[in-house]
C-alpha cells in the first residue's frame, strides 16, 4: 500500500508537452502541462487542465463517422457510445468509465485522452534531446497547468531530475497553494511566472471560485524568501473582469516596490472554446472581445510603470 503510494506520488498526469515555446519564460523552452487546478476561471482556455485525472475527449471534426467506422462503439464495453444525429458519435459521459479502449481503437485520433500518467524520468527522457536549444538560448522547461503545485511531489521529482541533467526549470503558477509547496518548488528555480488576476477579493472569487488572499500573500512571501528569484507577474486581461485602468493600476501598485519583478499582460483569447466541446462541457467563456484600444491603453500603463523602475 505504502509502496504503491510511493510510486503514484512520483507519477504525474501530463496533458501536453509543447516544444519550442517562446512565450513562457526565458529562452526557448518546452512546456509541460500538468492536469489539475484548484481554480475554475470562467475564461479558462485549457479546460482539459482543470481535473486531475485523465479525461476522454472527442474531436468531432476528425471523426470519420459511423457509416464507415464506429470502431469506438465496438470496443466500448459500457455502451457509452452511440450514433449522433450528424452521423458521427456521441458519448454518454454518465456511462463512460474512462477505460479509454475507444481511444486505442479510434483510427483518426478523434477520440483521445487528455492526460497521461508519466514518471519524471519519462518526462525528461522525452524532452532531453531539445536541451541543446535550451543551452543556446538560456531556456529550459516550464511546468504549467493546471496548477503545477497541485502535484508538488511530481513537480519536485521533475525538478530534481532536470537539475541532474543540467536543465533550467521554471513554473507557471496561479499562486493558489500552501506556502510550503510553493517554497519547495521555488528553491529549484531561477525564475517563476506568477499570475495575479485581480486585486479585488470578491470579484476574484466570483470569477475564479477562490479569493485572492492566499495568492497575494504567497507572492509577498516568495519575494521576501527568495530575493534572487526573478518573478514574472502576469495578468490575463479578461474583458468585463479586469480590463479597466483601476484593475491594472491596483496590481501595478501592489508589485510596485517589489524588486526583481517584471510585469506582463496576456490578452484574452477564446481559443479554448474547441476544447470545451471535446469534453462535452458547457462553454461559459466570455463572448465579449478584448478591444484593441483597451489593450493599447492598458499596455501603455504597464510600459509607463516600467519606465519608473
Amino acid at each position: 500500500m505504502n509502496a504503491k503510494n510511493q510510486v503514484n506520488k512520483k507519477m504525474g498526469c501530463v496533458f501536453n508537452v509543447q516544444r519550442y515555446s517562446v512565450h513562457d519564460g526565458p529562452g526557448i523552452r518546452t512546456i509541460i502541462f500538468l492536469k489539475g487546478c484548484p481554480l475554475s476561471c470562467r475564461w479558462c482556455s485549457n479546460p482539459e487542465s482543470q481535473y486531475a485525472e485523465p479525461e476522454l475527449a472527442f474531436n468531432r471534426n476528425k471523426c470519420i463517422g459511423t457509416s464507415e467506422c464506429f470502431r469506438c462503439s465496438t470496443f466500448c464495453a459500457f455502451d457509452a457510445i452511440s450514433e449522433a444525429a450528424d452521423g458521427k458519435i456521441s458519448i454518454d459521459r454518465q456511462k463512460c468509465t474512462k477505460c479509454f479502449r475507444c481511444v486505442a481503437a479510434c483510427p483518426s485520433k478523434a477520440m483521445h485522452t487528455f492526460g497521461k500518467m508519466m514518471s519524471a524520468k519519462e518526462v525528461l527522457d522525452s524532452i532531453e534531446s531539445e536541451s541543446m536549444f535550451y543551452a543556446r538560448s538560456g531556456g529550459g522547461i516550464t511546468i504549467s497547468g493546471g496548477e503545477p503545485l497541485h502535484q508538488i511531489d511530481f513537480v519536485e521529482e521533475i525538478f530534481k531530475e532536470a537539475k541532474r541533467r543540467r536543465i533550467d526549470v521554471t513554473m507557471e503558477t496561479c499562486g493558489f497553494a500552501d506556502w510550503e509547496k510553493l517554497q519547495r518548488a521555488a528553491g529549484y528555480m531561477k525564475s517563476i511566472l506568477f499570475d495575479i488576476k485581480s486585486m479585488d477579493p470578491v470579484k476574484h472569487e466570483e470569477y475564479t471560485g477562490v479569493s485572492n488572499e492566499l495568492i497575494l500573500q504567497n507572492l509577498q512571501c516568495l519575494r521576501e524568501a527568495f530575493p534572487d528569484l526573478q518573478i514574472f507577474v502576469r495578468t490575463p486581461l479578461i474583458p468585463g473582469f479586469n480590463d479597466t485602468e483601476e484593475d491594472i493600476k491596483a496590481i501595478l501598485t501592489f508589485i510596485k516596490d517589489m524588486p526583481n519583478v517584471k510585469y506582463e499582460l496576456l490578452p484574452y483569447h477564446r481559443m479554448g472554446q474547441q476544447k470545451y466541446e471535446y469534453l462535452d462541457r458547457p462553454y461559459e467563456m466570455i463572448e465579449e472581445k478584448l478591444q484593441d484600444e483597451t489593450y493599447s491603453k492598458l499596455q501603455s500603463l504597464v510600459s509607463a510603470k516600467r519606465e519608473i523602475h
Binding site: N16, Q18, Y20, S21, V22, H23, D24, I31, F33, S45, N46, N59, N61, S144, E172, R234, L266, H269, R270, M271, G272, Q273, Q274, K275, E277
Partner: peptide, 23 residues
C-alpha cells in the same frame, strides 16, 4: 500548424472555422 499563445497551445486546424476566422 501550432497556435502558440502564452500558457495555451492547440493546432490551428483543430479550431472551429469560426475561431480560425477569428485568428
Amino acid at each position: 500548424l501550432i497556435v502558440r499563445i502564452a500558457g495555451y497551445s492547440a493546432y490551428f486546424t483543430d479550431l472551429s472555422p469560426d475561431l480560425q476566422d477569428d485568428l
